[in-house]
């Protein structure tokens, strides 16, 4: 309690210092006139509906653009016609990599794309990093660290930048897309947005609608983990996956 009082006093005196530096003595009386803050929930909802309609009508163009930009960003991109083909493609990639242990999230997409069977056929052990009823968090973590392949769905993809948007929702999804040395993401064409602005508008709606209780973590993945810190020479896989595969499902 005492600490809380001290903190709010520290905050107030800090804000007063900032105000004085700006040449004011009192807090603003109104919300500043910034367009993004002035919008209301219904207006913002309308905006998102417009975006979704645009994405709907341009679906095949956006998919083609994503193939182009993702390839330029360093993804190995495969277009497949069905969920069945997608599963086969995952098996083929895993076999090609010589992967021994794969981890995957338990997103809905895996009910439609049976990667477990495909991986078994490719003789790759597949582990679902799902809710910890069976396994404790520490144990799941160790499994993720041992895996050499991670498989995940996406929340969205962004055609403009070759980006896959990953939102860990259940299980230890963060590590699935991060710690193994290779990553496969499954992207359904319906999830491809045109640009970053669309994505952020949709994400903001989520925030407005849930009154700030949106998922607390989102990562935009735009290619492999890379660095050019030694002599500006590009190298991949310094911390995250060095090889990344995007399977685009029509």
């Amino acid at each position: 309690m005492q600490a809380g009082v001290q903190e709010s006093a520290a905050k107030e005196s800090f804000l007063q210092m900032v105000r004085e530096a700006l040449g004011r003595n009192t807090p603003l009386l109104h919300v500043p006139d910034h367009p993004a803050l002035k919008t209301t929930l219904p207006r913002h909802q309308e905006k998102v509906v417009t975006i979704q309609a645009k994405v709907e009508t341009r679906r095949s163009t956006l998919a083609a653009r994503l193939v182009e930009t993702a390839t330029a960003a360093g993804w190995y991109v495969y277009r497949v016609a069905s969920e069945n083909e997608a599963a086969l493609k995952v098996g083929e990639i895993a076999r090609g990599l010589g992967a021994r242990r794969a981890v995957r999230t338990n997103e809905d997409i895996f009910r439609r794309v049976d990667v477990d069977l495909a991986l078994r056929n490719a003789r790759v052990a597949s582990i679902v990093l799902a809710a910890g009823r069976q396994r404790r968090r520490g144990e799941l973590r160790a499994l993720a660290l041992q895996a050499d392949l991670g498989i995940s769905g996406v929340e969205y993809a962004v055609a403009e930048t070759g980006t896959c948007v990953v939102v860990p929702r259940r299980g230890i999804a963060r590590m699935t897309t991060l710690t193994p040395s290779a990553l496969i993401v499954l992207v359904e064409e319906a999830k491809v947005l045109e640009n970053l602005d669309d994505l952020l508008a949709i994400w903001r709606l989520e925030n407005l609608r849930t009154r700030g209780r949106m998922p607390n973590y989102m990562t935009l993945v735009s290619g492999p983990s890379r660095t050019a810190d030694i002599e500006f020479t590009l190298t991949t896989g310094v911390h995250g996956p060095g090889r990344v595969y995007l399977v685009l499902i029509a």
Partner: peptide, 8 residues
């Protein structure tokens, strides 16, 4: 065009 990872 885009940094590899942007985390929110």
């Amino acid at each position: 065009r885009m940094t590899s990872y942007t985390t929110f």
